[in-house]
Nucleic acid binder design. Structure first.
Ligand code: NAD
Ligand code: NAD
Lengths: 230, 230
DNA sequence: CGCGATTTGTGCACGTCTTCACAAGCGCCT
DNA sequence: AGGCGCTTGTGAAGACGTGCACAAATCGCG
């Protein structure tokens, strides 16, 4: 489940604040989900909670980290060290969540050789050599959309089977390769959509606005974080 | 639907390459979804496709932009101009997707006054004044997690009802306020999970690995982009 | 040792999303 | 004008995710 990382983060917070056990309701609250959903997720792991007590925080962290494959620190190659790439390269939050940025790659000769956070930017053509040195588990694409497909092909060619894509385009990859996409403009547009709905609802409380805004049954949106009561 | 922005991006690409009409299958391909799903989504908009021909690209763009509320350019306030905030502030991709960064805010006096992309960083305490000048539609939080809740409260206090949160924490907001979260570490961990599954499957083709990796029915993950044929 | 408080694990029902498959509609060509 | 091929729109079935509600299990305490 995609909620496991969320639980893991909440658990780490709880561990730091000294909790040794946590009830499903407490953890569900910290992760922002329904407690029944959380219990069902955890039971899928074959996880051992104790009835009447709750879950052992340390044990649960171990279990989730094992299922997520975080027992080994995975090496990440970051391609495209521009505006966004710089921010990612300088981010220390990855290290604490089980990842290690192993290589920075760019096509611009002007950027090659630059040092960021103790790591030197290398040319994209060195990707095969980089992959041979460090066994790269995940490739991150932070290049313009026009270059993204080409970079993806190069990553696949050297054996990378997981890609995180920041460029606003769909990538075509062989089956067996996983691609996840992060598009900030999409997130903003979804928020804008909700704004628009809210505005048109209050503007025409009786008539319900135009035909386009009065959609039958409303449009479902994959929730990112539900509202939590004041 | 959360897929509308994806369709919109694909449509803009098609418009630039000179297409005037597009079949559901063509657009579905460009957006990386099933064609039946796309048709059902579009029919929900009351959209006018022509049977035997397809959809009018220009008209469809107009319709989707209207539904998403992009007919007006929405003002965005960015709070936290650090590592990530700099990248976001310098990103020109927002302007072309219907948004305008109207204000940059930070709590660090050392950052206040800095100019990025023609916009001066102002102090977070000026938020009420900023909100009064520009009617802020969306707030973006790029502060450390420890400050995120406080910033969210401040945004809500000045009337912002849509928040995009980059900090790895759940925000508590009144109902009526929408929060979307982007957590890169979560994305990487989901990829890591898939890597782990792939690895354990190939390692033990007969036995099926340990009890924990051989989960009954497999764990579902919200797809980010499905694999597209070679 | 027994009882009550508490919390997990899950059966079940419900609503939603997805996909197939096909009828209806449109334009083009003859 | 008529037929043919192509494409949309949608009905229906199945898969899936969600949340309630409750039985089973455990601990602490008298
Ligand atoms: N900056 C942001 O905040 C932001 C936000 C959302 C999305 N994005 C997306 O992220 C991507 C990168 O954005 P950016 O602002 O960093 O752009 P940028 O132009 O600043 O950086 C792109 C980098 O990629 C490098 N590059 C180009 N072609 C390459 C290739 N074939 N191989 C390797 N490297 C190559 C360039 O040399 C450059 O350094 C874009 O697709 C953008 O749409 C950026
Ligand atoms: N940098 C990345 O690539 C990256 C990636 C994923 C997630 N994140 C998350 O994004 C957030 C920001 O990351 P960063 O690397 O830019 O951190 P950063 O420390 O570089 O920047 C944080 C900025 O927020 C400002 N700030 C702190 N408290 C504030 C307050 N109360 N009001 C207004 N501004 C305040 C600070 O002055 C600083 O400028 C963090 O939560 C981080 O976990 C960052």
């Amino acid at each position: 489940m995609a909620r496991l990382p969320e639980y893991l983060r909440a658990l780490h917070n709880l561990a730091e604040t000294g909790h040794e056990t946590i009830s499903s309701e407490g953890l569900a609250n910290a992760a922002g989900v329904n407690s029944a959903k959380l219990r069902k997720d955890l039971s899928q792991l074959g996880s051992y909670g104790t009835r009447g007590v709750g879950y052992d925080v340390g044990l649960l962290i171990e279990q989730i980290e094992y299922v997520l494959g975080l027992t080994q620190r995975r090496a990440v190659a970051l391609v495209g060290v521009g505006n966004l790439g710089h921010a990612l390269a300088g981010y220390d939050g990855f290290a604490s969540r089980g990842f290690r940025i192993a290589a920075l790659l760019d096509a611009d000769p002007g950027r090659v050789g630059e040092e960021i956070n103790g790591l030197v930017v290398r040319h994209i053509d060195e990707l095969p050599r980089v992959a041979a040195e460090d066994s790269i588990a995940i490739g991150v694409i932070a290049t313009p959309a026009t270059a993204a497909q080409q970079v993806a092909d190069q990553l696949v060619a050297v054996g990378v089977t997981s890609i995180l894509n920041f460029a606003p385009c769909v990538l075509s990859v062989p089956s067996g390769v996983d691609v996840r996409k992060v598009d900030l403009a999409v997130e903003l547009q979804i928020l804008s959509f909700h704004e628009h709905r809210k505005a048109s609802q209050t503007a025409f409380p009786t008539a319900g606005g135009s035909a386009l805004t009065a959609l039958p049954g409303g449009l479902a949106v994959t929730e990112s974080q539900e509202a939590i009561g004041t």
